[in-house]
Amino acid sequence: MDFEIIKSALPLLVAGAGVTVEITALSVGFGMAIGIVISLIRLTGIKVLRVLGDIYVDFLRGTPLLVQIFLVYFALPGLIHHQVDAFFAAIFACSINSGAYVAEIFRGGIESIDKGQMEAGRSLGMTWWQTMRYIILPQAFKRIIPPLGNEFIAMLKDSSLVSVIGFEELTRRGQLIIARTYASFEIWLSVAFIYLIMTFAVARFVGLLERRYKKYEQ
């Protein structure tokens, strides 16, 4: 094992890890916005919206993220007659993918709240949306922290797939360094180790949040 190679590659890899965190945070962030909208429209009584929400979730959870990245990067430009850059494609594909998973997480969280809460809110004259916003969602948020943390960890790892469209996050950086140095073993081991540090840190952070919110749980 050549530690000198690792040492000299490390700054590049760490910068790549920063990019990985960036696309993960952006994708899960947009994914949360998409997810909450999708989960709410699936909970409304309006059938057309519900079906559209179901199709969205089924399609994005039922197809590989890699294929979705190809669709956005290679197929979409043909449709809109405009080149799509790698950064946009990476964020876009990961966000819509994450949105589908987050929608399911939100739905589970919302449905786990006792029906009596909605009834109590409505019986006080609050609208469905007011009750959602002030009563149901704040309680649901606390319950979905753990699965949301898992989604973040999953996206941290799955974002390595955007390396195939040449987007320079951690995995792609590793590939590029190996192309130059042929130090396959050292670099892939380092890349793996950096991913491990990141997922471990996120898992610990989520555990911390979980314990802090425990006190209001019944």
Binding site: G116, A120, Y216
Partner: peptide
């Protein structure tokens, strides 16, 4: 519903709010 109060078997208080917040939410929002 504003004019009809309801009390449930299982209380259905809002567990993430204090007693005071439970009481003031609807008068303020509704």
């Amino acid at each position: 519903r504003k004019e009809i109060g309801m009390v449930f078997q299982r209380f259905n208080l809002f567990p993430h709010m204090t007693v005071m917040e439970n009481l003031t939410l609807a008068p303020m929002k509704v």
